[in-house]
């Protein structure tokens, strides 16, 4: 097994054309910021032969052209980038507000989630809409933003049987994660509400409403407001 380290970054071959760079084995703001910084640096000053970058909570998966580079070469090309992380500033995060109609037909599991934690649905809504979440990365499907910062009191196990189709815009909780489903896709998270706002806009730039590093807040809206939004 190929394992090596540079500073606090660890390298590991994930396949014959990808290298996983990990910053620790814990989801922390610090580790996530290192991922973000390395991502930004590699986007600003791309390395020839690197084809794709997949950030996550505390790792960056780097896919390269195996006909031009090997793992050792990618690793040594990364060392100067890693050395600059400490001095790399992050852009000021954007603040994005997402209106959500909680409960009812839009959030069929809101009552279950609330009951699981001994609170009323209103308390669960209050708790879910109070923190500022951080977009840790986009993954799973186009525009699906993994948000960090769900209050521990709302962490809920995934459904035993995932839904074949989760309605577009659904807001769900899966374990200690929360997110909005940008498309009608299969999914196993518990649904607590729905947003009328499009998370993925094919004809807009950027296509994603949310970008990695953004600060997100959910704002509870009524059914009527939801209908109003949907008309726009």
């Amino acid at each position: 097994m190929r394992k090596a380290a540079a500073g606090d970054a660890q390298f590991q071959a994930a396949s014959d054309q990808s290298l996983l760079v990990s910053f620790g084995q814990q989801i922390t703001l610090d580790n996530h910021q290192r991922v973000l910084k390395l991502l930004h640096l590699l986007q600003a000053e791309p390395i020839d032969g690197i084809r794709n970058l997949q950030p996550a909570y505390c790792s960056l998966l780097i896919k390269f052209d195996p006909l031009r580079l090997n793992h050792d070469e990618v690793q040594s090309r990364l060392v100067p980038y890693l050395a600059r992380l400490g001095k790399t500033p992050l852009p000021r995060p954007r603040a994005v507000e997402i209106p959500v109609c909680y409960g009812g037909e839009f959030g069929p599991e809101l009552s279950d989630v609330a009951a699981m934690h001994g609170m009323t649905p209103a308390q669960a809504v209050e708790l879910h809409s109070s923190p500022i979440y951080i977009v840790c990365f986009l993954g799973f499907a186009p525009g699906f933003a993994y948000l960090g910062g769900l209050p521990e009191a709302l962490a809920s196990p995934r459904l035993e049987t995932p839904r074949a189709k989760v309605p577009q815009g659904s807001v769900g909780i899966g374990g200690s994660q929360t997110a909005v489903y940008p498309f009608a896709t299969p999914g196993g998270w518990r649904l607590i509400g729905r947003t009328p706002v499009a998370m993925f806009r094919r004809h807009q730039d950027p296509m994603n409403l949310l970008q990695i590093g953004d600060h997100v807040r959910f704002r509870p809206i009524s059914k009527e407001e939801f209908a109003e939004f949907s008309k726009r």
Binding site: S15, Q26, Q54, L60, G139, A141
Partner: peptide, 26 residues
């Protein structure tokens, strides 16, 4: 901890029945 996954990865869920991530992968 959730991380980036590469094409052709053989992931093993708790059931132990492997899934190969393919072209339209998560």
């Amino acid at each position: 901890i959730t991380e980036g996954v590469s094409l052709g990865a053989i992931q093993v869920p708790p059931s132990g029945q492997p899934i190969i991530l393919f072209v339209e992968q998560q």
